[in-house]
Write a protein that binds this DNA or RNA. Structure first.
Lengths: 153, 153
DNA sequence: TATCTTTGTGTGCACGTGCACGCAACCCGG
DNA sequence: CCGGGTTGCGTGCACGTGCACACAAAGATA
């Protein structure tokens, strides 16, 4: 504890920004995951599946969720299984494809998500408000949009 | 694949920015980790330990690294063990405290880090350049600085 | 129709990581 | 000196996750 604090001053602005991005994402993720797990026994991965299902009013296939979200297809499969064991989601066989299995929130799932989402917003507000103003948030959205754009279509 | 693409338009700007932050951090992390593992057989967690050791010219204790970095203390302990098996770091017993074990890069470790760091910069440049300008990077650094500030000292 | 390729899904396996415990060394008050 | 509390370290254990495989069903081709 005697020696000076570690720092990254020698790095280029780009490297510094990168590390900050990763740090912020990891820290905020941990904070939200902790709040969700503690108050609702819902890991962040479970919550994320429910989030995407909540904005989609039709059943969604695991492969679709795996492609759009940060989770892998196999992970979605397992998470859906766990959520189904709690009665929060249900499996809807596709009428056109016997292989495909749609996943949809049950009514209990919608209620549970609404409560958990309130917790998430609360935790996020605690981390963001009085720290970032609208300009910062707009800048983050702009950066996201630029990074998300594929290099080649 | 028939239904429309999932979107998060219904969320507040703050929520949207949060998801973008997590998305960007996760995606970039995966990209860098992939490049480091493929070209140098160095997982990102190993590289991060070496990064912090490279900016510190004295041996650093695992507890110190665990507190300052994104890695936990126990993880640092294991990573250091793996790096030591490759001869990239060495254990330096503290002269003042028999419990404390300092970790420091060996000469081979410094060379390996230099090569790996070049790969990291290359992967990062590929992801950043022609996408983010100096203003974006400055905005990211500002956001990081604001988020990093402790709510209470 | 019959066969081969492709797509969607679930799961065994290996690995990385967090948590909690045990142990050794340090510190401190008596 | 010495006993109790604290700190630093490593590790067993449980769990989540990625990868690769197996299987079923759909589509393509002859």
């Amino acid at each position: 504890m005697a020696h000076s604090e570690l720092n990254l001053d020698g790095l280029t602005p780009r490297d510094h920004a990168f590390y900050g991005l990763v740090w912020a994402g990891t820290t905020l993720t941990a904070r939200v995951d902790q709040a969700l797990t503690r108050h609702h026994d819902l890991p962040l991965s479970w919550f994320e599946v429910m989030l995407w299902l909540s904005v989609q009013h039709e059943p969604v296939a695991p492969s679709e969720l795996g492609a759009r979200t940060l989770l892998s297809r196999s992970q979605v499969s397992r998470v859906a299984d766990s959520l189904r064991a709690r009665g929060l989601v249900e499996r809807v066989p596709s009428p056109t494809d016997a292989r495909s299995v749609g996943i949809a929130l049950t009514e209990a799932g919608r209620r549970a998500f609404a409560e958990a989402d309130a917790t998430r917003r609360e935790a996020l507000a605690e981390a963001f408000d009085d720290r970032l103003d609208d300009m910062d948030i707009a800048a983050l959205e702009a950066v996201w949009a630029k990074l998300k754009a594929r290099p080649e279509a």
